[in-house]
């Protein structure tokens, strides 16, 4: 499977944020998007997710499900955690699993979704499953948001500043999750300032043009 973006341009509020971005990513590879603040890293991920219509160019998935849009092949984890404080940790996770997953998914992408309990254990918050999400710390909320990526299978992970609010140990655990996803044949596109210890990894640097 291959994710291709041709000549992408994006406008926000009548202003051209970036133009002429092209990228191509194979199954089992990772891409790090870097660049100074305000250069459009988040916008690029939102365009890839299909949340923002590109002003020019297009995004395509080769070898995926032809019925689905490229965005439907993606998990998106942005600055917001998409958690409801009034629901318990398990309720939050189970809702997203029910909402996002389709029954034939494992066969579809060759990636197996994880059991909810196992997913919470893997991100290290298995002990708080029955607590309301309101009681979680910022780092724990982040991990719960990441557990969502594990319980439904999507070949492409779009991660916007995934290490925000995470300490060094959690960062290492996150890298481990990404490595496992890439090794299983998934793709990771992360917008981050930190170097990612993944293999193979390529870098897309967005530069502010003068």
């Amino acid at each position: 499977m291959r994710l291709i973006a041709e000549n992408l341009a994006c406008d926000r509020g009548g202003r051209r944020v970036f133009a002429g971005v092209r990228l191509s990513l194979e199954s089992g590879a990772a891409l790090v998007v870097t660049g100074p603040n305000g250069v459009g890293k988040s916008s690029l991920l939102r365009v890839l997710a299909g949340l923002v219509q590109p002003a020019e160019g297009h995004v395509a998935i080769e070898g995926g499900d032809d019925e689905a849009t490229p965005g439907e092949h993606c998990h998106y984890s942005g600055h917001l955690d998409a958690l409801k404080p009034a629901l318990s940790v398990a309720e939050n996770l189970l809702f997203w699993r029910a909402f996002l997953s389709a029954p034939d998914e494992p066969a579809c992408f060759g990636l197996a979704p994880c059991d909810p309990e196992a997913a919470l254990e893997r991100v290290g918050i298995g002990h708080v499953a029955d607590l309301p999400a309101a009681y979680l710390s910022a780092g724990q909320r982040r991990r719960l948001a990441l557990a969502r990526l594990l319980v439904t299978a999507r070949p492409v992970w779009l991660l916007d500043e995934p290490t925000a609010a995470l300490d060094a140990a959690s960062e290492e655990a996150l890298t481990e999750l990404m490595r496992a996803h890439v090794n299983a044949g998934g793709m990771v596109i992360a917008a981050t300032h930190q170097p990612l210890d993944l293999d193979p990894v390529s870098t897309l640097r967005l530069e502010a043009a003068t």
Binding site: E67, H73, A86, L87, E91, L94, P103
Partner: peptide, 22 residues
């Protein structure tokens, strides 16, 4: 991956979530 999903599961999950939240 929207194709062959039985609509009941996610519709029910969404309904239950909204009702719980309210």
């Amino acid at each position: 991956m929207s194709g062959p999903t039985p609509a009941g599961t996610w519709v029910g999950a969404l309904f239950a979530r909204e009702l719980r939240l309210s």
